[in-house]
Write a protein that binds this DNA or RNA. Sequence first.
DNA 1: GACTTTATATAGACCAGTCGTTATAATATA
DNA 2: TATATTATAACGACTGGTCTATATAAAGTC
Lengths: 188, 188
Amino acid sequence: MTTARDQIIEATCELFEMQGYHATGLNQIIKKSGSPKGSLYYYFPGGKEELTAEAINYTGQIILQRIESSLATIEDPAVAISTFILFVAQNVHASGYRAGGPITTVALETATTSEKLSEECAKIYQSWQTAFTKKLLQSNYNPQQAESLAATIIASLEGGIILSRTYKNVKPLESIAEQMSKLVAAYK
Amino acid sequence: MTTARDQIIEATCELFEMQGYHATGLNQIIKKSGSPKGSLYYYFPGGKEELTAEAINYTGQIILQRIESSLATIEDPAVAISTFILFVAQNVHASGYRAGGPITTVALETATTSEKLSEECAKIYQSWQTAFTKKLLQSNYNPQQAESLAATIIASLEGGIILSRTYKNVKPLESIAEQMSKLVAAYK
DNA sequence: GACTTTATATAGACCAGTCGTTATAATATA
DNA sequence: TATATTATAACGACTGGTCTATATAAAGTC
């Protein structure tokens, strides 16, 4: 029964997604999680860096599962990818444009500071990219094209979340869903 | 003669681009700029928020000019856009993957905190997007398509910078250059 | 079963340092 | 002398991190 530990991780994820890494203090995390600071350092002796690594891997896995299950339900890759992007758009809208891209802020804020966290972020992005690549390979896309398309999808998705959050409307993500669908459909 | 003011703004821009908003302290800014703290609050009585607004507008304008002049030199929009993305890739690489996307971090970190800064970021992104839209309109693209393509280009560029910085290689940005070129060439 | 020992986990005071901000004094410039 | 700018000192609030004390519970011993 590791509820306290899990609650700390989940609180961290939510706060990172909305506020970013540096804006989120340990005091805020323990307050939200309901656990005292002693528990935080008991479960994460490596401090904020270790907690962050656990937190981004936790959300990273959840999102990977969403990608995989979403891509599995629709056979046509162009439609499947477009559907997933619109699904993300819905979530961003539902949060009042305050959430989305949970590891993007960590990736950017720790890029020059923590080699370890930067590598963790790279692994997570890579796992997402691989999920899209596999979907395209199943439809007999050229391997190089599949990889290139997958990178473009992840990048435009991340960038689209930033644009939609900043504009406070889902138009960018809707445009991206449309364009990525066309791109995937056209170049097999 | 506003050298002190300008130096503070330029130092702020450089630090934001590498470290992000919250990781950059005013003490670090004044140390890098060589000006004392008194000068900072003399020129920017609104404190960090006002300084940030000035700084992101400053870089935002510079990048807008780069986009415009770059797009003006090559007539074919597909080639022009691909060339610009590869130009960005070069810069990201040249910085040792420590710089790129100067206002992205501010957009993400202040999205839920400061309405003012969020709006400033939106205006800047909008100005970049408009530059690409205009280029496409000049080549007689459908206005709606032009807008949608421009949003996709900006988003994939921002996302591509994040991916390339995290992976520490330019492959994502190169893929995006290739895919955006194909996308623009295919759908007029 | 009763008692002791050991590990697990909670709880929060406390540290040095930094944050953004304010206030005030000194100094240039006109 | 008046104004514009520089230069510091200090402020309260907060940061991530350390520390000790305490509760809880499992395991070992008689």
